[in-house]
Design a protein around this nucleic acid. Structure first.
Length: 181
DNA sequence: TCATTGATTTCA
DNA sequence: GAAATCAATGAT
């Protein structure tokens, strides 16, 4: 797993492929409390704590976009964990997802909220995240990455939002994770 | 509870 | 080709 050896007293470090390659049901709640860092064209780096996520897991999960097979839009979800899956919905909003798991096992964690901007459409608008972020590699990109600050998050789980079309048993899976402390 | 808004998917 | 659908938000 990840080496705990640290240089100096700064505990913040960028998450590596070892983290993202794990199952989405581990990664999605583990992202809570971590820091989403986005670099603006101006060079300014914006950092926000992740407060809410949802898990989308594999071709059998009918709420997961990849359940309909590999398409131009879902291709990135079939890669190994650590890539960014961004898509446009309702004619207005970009959704930010983190690809997880091994190659050819399509999984992703939707970032539904960050501190100060609750809501998946609101956070992408606030951070100016759009389709140009599709396929960015969180382990090497110089404009988007996630940092671990060593914070041990507490959270609750609920049903996922906006996926009633998926039917049973997927609609009732407790795969939404909300930070509580 | 409804308008917004356009890419993606589904049905023909 | 056309029609329906949609990981949402904000105003009414």
């Amino acid at each position: 797993m990840v080496s705990e050896k640290r240089a100096g007293k700064d505990k913040t470090r960028r998450l590596t492929v070892d983290f993202y390659a794990q199952d989405v049901l581990f990664v999605a709640p583990a992202l809570l409390g971590k820091i989403l860092a986005v670099k603006r064209p101006s060079g300014e780096i914006m950092r926000h704590m992740i407060t809410e996520t949802e898990a989308y897991r594999g071709v059998e999960d009918r709420a997961c976009h990849a359940s309909k097979g590999k398409t131009q839009r879902t291709e990135v979800m079939f890669r190994r964990g650590g890539y960014v899956y961004v898509y446009f919905v309702y004619g207005m909003y970009w959704m930010l997802n983190i690809v997880t798991g091994p190659e050819n096992e399509p999984q992703a964690a939707l970032i539904r909220g960050i501190k100060g901007y609750e809501g998946p459409g609101r956070l992408t608008r606030a951070l100016a995240i759009d389709g140009t972020f599709y396929g960015e590699d969180l382990t090497s990109s110089d404009r988007i990455w996630i940092e671990d600050n060593g914070y041990a998050a507490k959270y609750i789980t609920t049903k996922r939002v906006g996926i009633n079309y998926a039917g049973q048993p997927w609609v009732d899976m407790p795969w939404r994770f909300i930070l509580t402390a």
